[in-house]
Structure formats: C-alpha cells, structure tokens
Design a protein around this nucleic acid. Structure first.
Lengths: 150, 150
DNA sequence: GTAGATGCAAAGTCTTTGCATGTGT
DNA sequence: ACACATGCAAAGACTTTGCATCTAC
C-alpha cells in the first residue's frame, strides 16, 4: 500500500539527497500516523536495526520541517517537541491523558469559524492546531478498577 | 476592577501560604490575559522591581499548575513552556506568526463536536486546546511594505 | 517554632552545533 | 570531485533540584 521510493521522490522534489537516514525517518513518520518525538523515531529505528544518531534525527526533522514535508506540533506531556508529516488531509487528535494514545479525528469544524474571524478582526488565518484531551475507553475502565492514583 | 487580596484568597483556598512571590506571579498572570513564559514573568517582575529568582518562578508556576490555579499550555515558537491562569471563561487565541501577538477569541465552537466524538468513540473529553495561526493586520501591512524576508 | 518558600548554584533534559569523516549525485 | 549528510562529543537552552536560609502561620 506504500511503494518504496515514495519518500525518495518527495526528497528529490525538495532538492534533498536521498539518504538512508532521511528515508528511514520519513517512513517512520509515515507509519506513525500521529505526532512523535525525535527520540521515539530514534528508538523505533534502533528496534529495526536501522542505526542512526539522535542528533541526525533532529537534523533531519529540522530539514523536513523547513521544506514543509513535516511539521512540528506542540510538545508532549514532558515538553518534548513532536513532529508529524505534513499530510494533505488535515487532521486533529483525541489525546488520552491516561496512556497518551492519540486518536485521529476526521472532521475539522473550523473553516467557518476562521472565515468569520478573518472578517471580524482583519487577521489572516494560515492554519490552526486543535487537540482534544480526555480519557480513552480503556483508561476509563482502568480508572474504575484501581482508584489509587497519586 | 481587581481588589487586592483576590490572589491571597485563592492561595488560601488551596492550602498555600500567601507569599510575595506567589502573589506577584499570580498578578502577572492575571494582567497578561494570555499565555506567557516563565521568563517573561521573571522580567516583568524585574521591571517592576519585584525581585524573584527564575527558579522560584518555575516553582511557583509548577505549584499553581498542580493546584489547577494555572495551566501549562503548549510551547512558544522556541519550545519554551507557556502558562496562563485557569480562567473560568474558556478562551482561544489568534496567534500572529509575525509578531507573536495573541488575540483572544470569544467564541468556542467545540462543544457540539466533542459531544459527538464522545458518543462515536467512547472517549471521555475533559478539555481541548485550539489555536489559530496567521498574520495580524499590522504584520500583513508590514509584509506588503518590505518583501525581503529570508 | 515549624513546615513550607526562596535563592543560588548545580544538575538534568532536550536540542543544536562544530568538526572530522562518509556518501549521493 | 564536491557539496552535502552523518556521527560524536561538546555546547546551548530551558527546566528542575539540593541545600542552606528565610518567612508565613
């Protein structure tokens, strides 16, 4: 469902050399389907015996962000930067505060709001970020079972 | 419009001692009206000759967040954590990518979406974050004038 | 008087950078 | 060949923590 070389092509279009590191990082982002930290990518690749250094992961992510292939989204619960592919389909997530799972939401309800705000304020909207927090079904069950948090 | 002692009272309710530092940090958050970094608070107080150490600012913010008097929102363009008072009125911001100004938006259009998502996914929503990015009227003007960005 | 708050400096994290080496075109 | 990518270690930036001192209650 994902022909090899898709990443290579995207890199070439941006005038970037096709390298082992870049392809692997991009594949990992592709596979992730939601925002991940640099370190997560690093360990994911380590697990797959694809050696790379963490600083290179950061450098690659920096490059991808600059080329708008990826984007840096807020930060995780520990303040680490998160990255995801700049997909054409626009997406938001339900973020579980228990297990930090991120569930994609298909529908984006903001277009109309943005149009109104532009008219009212003269602000020119280029994008937005939206995340919805709460507890996933699994974590809700667990919380009912053991009520010995903190 | 803001009687002295409002902060003191809120602290007492949370079982926290009323100290110079805490009151000053809370007043600064109150005055800010939008998310600020620890360092911004630090400099703001310095400007007002209210001496405090940066680590204390961080510690106070940590305490306020734990007590849910304040909350930590994402991070700024440099990855620094931002904090704001946990206001009862729920608010979002238009964030200018040019000058980093943050303009509050009154209307929050997400209640209905959240209800639907809860039904569809079994996720229990406790909150959300929404920020809208773009360029404020001033920055748009400036960009028309000098087109020598990067 | 005592538990908790603060300042300072030191330690911790996460991220970026300098430099020598390796690699894609 | 040469520009650019990478690894490693070191530096940077932001945040947290240990400890002695101070302060609110």
């Amino acid at each position: 469902m994902n022909q090899t070389g898709q990443e290579a092509e995207r890199l070439k279009r941006c005038g970037l050399k096709k390298t082992r590191g870049r392809e692997n990082v991009m594949k990992t982002l592709e596979a992730a389907k939601c925002p991940v930290t640099a370190e997560k990518i690093f360990w994911e690749l380590k697990k797959q015996r694809k050696e790379i250094s963490l600083s290179t992961v950061y450098r690659i992510l920096g490059t991808l962000v600059k080329k708008e292939i990826a984007k840096r989204t807020g930060s995780d619960e520990n303040g680490r930067a998160m990255f995801e592919l700049n997909r054409h389909i626009h997406r938001h997530y339900l973020v579980c505060l228990g297990c930090h799972k991120m569930i994609p939401v298909e529908h984006c309800p903001l277009g109309e709001l943005e149009k109104r705000l532009e008219q009212e304020t003269g602000f020119s909207v280029t994008g937005h970020s939206l995340e919805i927090y709460g507890y996933c079904a699994d974590c809700q069950k667990q919380m009912l079972t053991k009520k010995k948090e903190k």
